[in-house]
Design a binder for these strands. Structure first.
Length: 272
DNA sequence: GTAAACCTGGCA
DNA sequence: TGCCAGGTTTAC
């Protein structure tokens, strides 16, 4: 589910309820996530104070006052929602429940269990070793960065942008959307891109992501932010899941094609 | 490189 | 009943 804009929305919505609070209780109801939760996981959280809420690519990071970082990845179906009412009973797929001082709890719910939760030293963590730059960081994710890859790969531009080692935080929805804005088909080989194409991809990524963050992410079927609200960007999608519907710019029917095992959508007239 | 794997739920 | 889904890793 959550790509960069959704994780950023979860971060900003949870931050006021969580930062400055201490963790008094951790209830692991299901430890079999993408990687099994370690037996020490509760002990590495209990007694710590959350000092900041940050995001890196699609990871949500809570800094703890002992220098460690509480890391969450949401996979396809993960949610982290704050409940001030502690009397509600845990529901299905509520895998981890973290109690905060003064009442209130954070509930990690993930039906498909592709998510991940761990407490690690961020600097030493393998999770971020190969992660590419933040797409909103103008000094790192540049047209140059993309242009330099052109000679090294036969992959399509969509494959490359989905690769978290190239740029961190883009997923299937927003790569489809930014390629529409850039006027480039998802099937285009990176090596067939001009320098100008690379510029347009980079600037389109920024404007699509910024717009999606402004609208609190996309709730296609089930995305909720940290306090249970839906996003609004799903109503602004130009191509994602719109096959057969008219292009908002030219009226041509949006096409669908599989690229790198993932459904891809484009306007055959606006994107070349 | 490409395909399959990990899971559950929703929909045709 | 079969196929698809905001992701990532692992195996041919």
């Amino acid at each position: 589910m959550p790509e960069l804009p959704e994780v950023e929305t979860i971060r900003t919505s949870l931050s006021p309820a969580v930062v400055g609070r201490s963790i008094v209780d951790v209830d692991v109801r299901e430890s079999r996530l993408r990687r099994p939760l370690s037996a020490q996981f509760p002990d590495s959280l209990i007694g710590r104070v959350v000092t900041a809420a940050r995001r890196r690519a699609k990871y949500l990071l809570f800094d703890l006052n002992d220098g460690m970082t509480w890391i969450t990845h949401f996979g396809m179906s993960g949610r982290l929602v704050y409940h001030s009412n502690t009397s509600v009973q845990p529901g299905t797929h509520d895998h981890v429940i973290v109690g905060l001082d003064g009442g209130g709890r954070l509930v990690f719910n993930d039906p498909r269990r592709f998510g991940l939760m761990t407490v690690e030293d961020e600097a030493a963590s393998q999770l971020f070793r190969q992660l590419g730059p933040e797409p909103l960081d103008e000094s790192c994710f540049t047209a140059d960065h993309l242009a330099k890859l052109r000679a090294k790969t036969v992959r399509t531009v969509k494959d490359v942008l989905m690769d978290q080692r190239v740029v961190g935080g883009l997923g299937n929805i927003y790569v489809n959307e930014l390629l529409f804005l850039a006027g480039i088909r998802p099937t285009r080989r990176l090596k067939r891109m001009t320098r100008d194409d690379c510029e347009r991809v980079v600037s389109s990524a920024r404007s699509v992501l910024a717009d999606a963050i402004e609208h609190k992410g996309s709730s296609i079927s089930d995305f909720l932010d940290g306090i249970g609200r839906r996003g609004a960007y799903q109503g602004r999608l130009r191509v994602y899941d719109r096959q057969g519907k008219p292009c908002s710019r030219c009226g041509a029917a949006i096409k669908s094609v599989v690229v790198g095992q993932r459904s891809s959508f484009y306007c055959p007239r606006c994107q070349r």
